[in-house]
């Protein structure tokens, strides 16, 4: 591989990391509260609001059933309204975030549902408010599951970010298509694939490590 491709690969990697990082953060900011609400708002639960729950659930399912590449194209007008353009990394962040929010919400919802009902009961018996129960019981107890869910979400975002490359999003996917496919430079394609594999591996390992750190449900060797 010629030396002048290195900076191009570097730039593309940074663009991908940027898109993934920002959309993961925004997706979490939206998905975490939404997931908590979905988990707590069924009839008879902490924040009982069955109708709102149903409607939000439908919206989440609808968003999740639209193929990502169609979502990207379908919301171009919205993207343009938000960031002023429909191409580039900033434009890519809009559909990435939009896909991340419902995905993360469902993962968070599942993690929170795993929390033992007995703990909620104990907290209610202490006189905790619903908000205190969420903040001091549900989220800390669900943290290992939430961490693994976010890991999965970031891995998926890495894949999606490569897809937005196809519509001018820049990043590794874009590079792979333009150089590897259109200019027929298979070594660029190979390099892109290797970088993506390494990124996914790193994210997965980091996520699992953090999840294990925060998981206190099983005894750990003390000392040693």
């Amino acid at each position: 591989m010629s030396a002048n491709l290195i900076p191009i690969l570097w730039d593309a990697t940074m663009q991908t990391l940027y898109m993934v990082a920002i959309s993961a953060i925004l997706g979490t900011l939206g998905g975490l509260p939404l997931g908590v609400f979905l988990a707590c708002s069924q009839r008879g639960e902490l924040l009982s609001a069955p109708w709102v729950n149903k409607v939000l659930g439908l919206v989440v399912n609808a968003t999740r059933s639209v193929p990502f590449i169609i979502l990207v194209v379908a919301i171009i007008p919205f993207t343009r309204a938000v960031v002023g353009t429909s191409i580039g990394t900033n434009a890519a962040i809009v559909p990435l975030t939009l896909a991340a929010v419902p995905f993360i919400a469902r993962l968070v919802e599942n993690a929170i549902r795993e929390v033992d009902q007995g703990l909620i009961e104990a907290a209610r018996a202490m006189g905790a408010t619903p908000f205190q129960i969420i903040r001091k019981v549900l989220i800390p107890e669900a943290l290992p599951g939430i961490t693994l869910g976010l890991t999965l979400a970031v891995v998926s975002l890495i894949g999606y970010s490569a897809m937005v490359g196809a519509v001018g999003g820049q990043g590794l996917g874009d590079l792979g298509i333009r150089y590897g496919y259109q200019r027929f430079m298979p070594e660029v394609m190979a390099a892109v694939v290797v970088i993506l594999i390494v990124l996914v591996q790193l994210v997965q390992s980091l996520g699992e490590w953090i999840a294990a750190r925060v998981d206190r449900r099983a005894p750990r060797n003390r000392g040693a």
Partner: peptide, 20 residues
Amino acid sequence: LRAIRRDVGMIFQHFNLLAS
């Protein structure tokens, strides 16, 4: 109700302690 609950402690068969 929450004020009354603070004056009433409760213990459980399965302890219901926070693992975290």
